[in-house]
Simulated assay, not measured.
Amino acid sequence: MRGQWSLIIGLIVAILIAVFAVINVDPVRVNYLFGTADWPLILVILGSVFMGAIVAGTIGILRVYQLQAEIKRLKKEKLNLEGEEINKTGELPSASKKKEKETKL
């Protein structure tokens, strides 16, 4: 359901940007480091939105990769800790937890 709402909101934002860009079709002067050019404002607006989306998407993808690497590291650490617990007690961690519950009762 969340994905559907994200899609709907994304489409609404895209439509608003497209309408805003179509209304602004006058040529504007764009200054580069090495010169200037006259571009239609619609292309400047859409180009800016596109570049912003690329930057935001790249940052998001990098963050996802960082989180996935952290999840792998934590899973590996958990397995190592469980292995150490098995070596110390000689039984599985779930079995020792069951024994603790039984002794409390």
Results as ranks from 00 to 15, higher is better:
residue 10 G to Q: 02
residue 10 G to D: 10
residue 11 L to R: 10
residue 12 I to D: 10
residue 12 I to Y: 15
residue 13 V to E: 05
residue 13 V to Q: 12
residue 13 V to L: 10
residue 14 A to T: 12
residue 14 A to W: 08
residue 14 A to Q: 07
residue 15 I to A: 14
residue 15 I to T: 14
residue 15 I to H: 11
residue 16 L to E: 12
residue 16 L to C: 14
residue 16 L to T: 13
residue 16 L to H: 12
residue 17 I to W: 01
residue 17 I to L: 13
residue 18 A to V: 15
residue 19 V to H: 09
residue 19 V to F: 10
residue 20 F to Y: 03
residue 21 A to C: 05
residue 22 V to N: 07
residue 22 V to M: 09
residue 25 V to T: 13
residue 25 V to I: 15
residue 26 D to E: 13
residue 26 D to P: 01
residue 27 P to T: 03
residue 28 V to H: 10
residue 28 V to N: 10
residue 28 V to A: 02
residue 28 V to K: 00
residue 28 V to Q: 15
residue 29 R to D: 02
residue 30 V to K: 00
residue 31 N to P: 13
residue 31 N to F: 11
residue 32 Y to N: 09
residue 32 Y to L: 00
residue 32 Y to K: 00
residue 33 L to T: 09
residue 33 L to C: 08
residue 35 G to L: 01
residue 35 G to I: 00
residue 35 G to V: 04
residue 35 G to A: 08
residue 35 G to Y: 00
residue 35 G to D: 06
residue 36 T to K: 03
residue 38 D to E: 12
residue 38 D to R: 00
residue 39 W to A: 14
residue 39 W to D: 09
residue 39 W to Q: 09
residue 40 P to I: 03
residue 41 L to Q: 06
residue 41 L to A: 11
residue 41 L to I: 03
residue 42 I to Q: 11
residue 42 I to H: 03
residue 43 L to N: 07
residue 43 L to Q: 15
residue 43 L to S: 12
residue 43 L to P: 01
residue 43 L to M: 15
residue 43 L to F: 07
residue 44 V to W: 03
residue 44 V to N: 07
residue 44 V to G: 02
residue 44 V to D: 12
residue 46 L to W: 05
residue 48 S to A: 02
residue 48 S to L: 04
residue 48 S to D: 03
residue 48 S to G: 07
residue 49 V to K: 00
residue 50 F to T: 05
residue 50 F to I: 11
residue 51 M to D: 07
residue 52 G to Y: 06
residue 53 A to L: 08
residue 53 A to I: 08
residue 54 I to R: 10
residue 54 I to S: 06
residue 54 I to V: 11
residue 55 V to Q: 04
residue 56 A to Y: 09
residue 56 A to E: 08
residue 56 A to H: 03
residue 57 G to Q: 06
residue 57 G to R: 00
residue 58 T to D: 10
residue 59 I to M: 04
residue 59 I to H: 04
residue 59 I to E: 09
residue 59 I to D: 14
residue 60 G to Q: 04
residue 60 G to L: 01
residue 61 I to M: 08
residue 61 I to V: 04
residue 61 I to A: 12
residue 61 I to E: 02
residue 62 L to F: 04
residue 62 L to K: 14
residue 62 L to E: 05
residue 63 R to N: 13
residue 63 R to H: 15
residue 63 R to D: 13
residue 63 R to G: 01
residue 64 V to G: 06
residue 64 V to F: 07
residue 65 Y to P: 02
residue 66 Q to C: 15
residue 67 L to N: 00
residue 67 L to S: 06
residue 68 Q to D: 13
residue 68 Q to H: 15
residue 68 Q to Y: 12
residue 69 A to H: 15
residue 69 A to M: 12
residue 69 A to G: 15
